[in-house]
Design a binder for these strands. Structure first.
Lengths: 152, 152
DNA sequence: ATACCTGCAAATGCTTTGCGGATGG
DNA sequence: CCATCCGCAAAGCATTTGCAGGTAT
């Protein structure tokens, strides 16, 4: 796990003028510790503070911008106000329950030849696919529904 | 075309306590006139003003909220700051060029049995699927790339 | 008549920016 | 040493809200 922080860090520094700072290391560390979670900038800020290594909010936003451009993380808008970030770990997609706000991750929903088809039919070279599916989760499917948006 | 405005209006008023006002009629009119476009609240605001039937921005946001909940429109975040709205006309998806910001609409990208599969495998009842594909369009695929985000 | 709408102005909340001081390479 | 980065405070923007007056039904 500690290894991976360095993997990412090294990769970032490799070709560019990107400096390795305690703040950036800490942010990546937190992203790895919470892999599979969707975290807002504010949540990362709180976690860092709780671990006695506070990182200022503007620094977090600036870092997220860099990491997103590098493809290390992806930024999601689930409709709850603040953007949510997560480590990019393979192409997966999100089922979003409109009743309780739960996010379920799923893979393997897209046809395998999608990228080639788009290139052939549209001349479009795709880098990343994001499928969001809105609906009701197992628990809410038969419950009376409340209104959206609802964060968790 | 004028017919369709009334279709939507009537449909909205049918089961609910929703009033038919000039502002709501105007907004729907503009959405229909610009079908296939992606418009921000601000753009709708400008268009209404230009047509001598101004609608206040808060009213536009409030109306968009209602129309979205009713499924008349869908709200998109393409990363350019403001949300973009469009009439819901069949399930289509968006190719987003990271170089020039162009949005290309495409249909028929998802497996036909997707909804049934999700219900069977996850117990998830899906209402709406939105696939966003980031990459480079035909014109930009060989151009030197600039940085993102760029709106148009 | 009355519940619902609108417009205005102000508030809100996420995100970005300017800047002086700090620091990694 | 110097370009880059950080934290702070303040600004920027899209969106929401409170409220008083207006309007559809």
């Amino acid at each position: 796990m500690e290894l991976e922080v360095n993997d990412i860090i090294d990769n970032l520094a490799e070709h560019n003028e990107l400096r390795i700072t305690d703040q950036r290391r800490k942010i990546i560390e937190l992203l790895i510790e919470n892999r599979g979670q969707h975290m807002s900038a504010e949540e990362i800020h709180h976690l860092a503070k709780k671990k006695e290594q506070p990182v200022a909010l503007p620094t977090i936003y600036r870092t997220m911008g860099i990491l997103e451009k590098k493809g290390v993380i992806s930024k999601n808008d689930f409709g709850g106000g603040a953007a949510k970030y997560e480590l990019s770990l393979g192409n997966h997609h999100h089922l979003i329950c409109e009743n309780c706000g739960k996010i379920i991750e799923v893979s393997g929903l897209l046809p395998a030849d999608l990228e080639q088809r788009l290139l052939a039919e549209q001349g479009f070279q795709s880098k990343e696919q994001r499928l969001k599916i809105y609906g009701y989760c197992r628990e809410c499917i038969n419950k009376p529904k409340k209104s959206w948006p609802g964060t968790q």
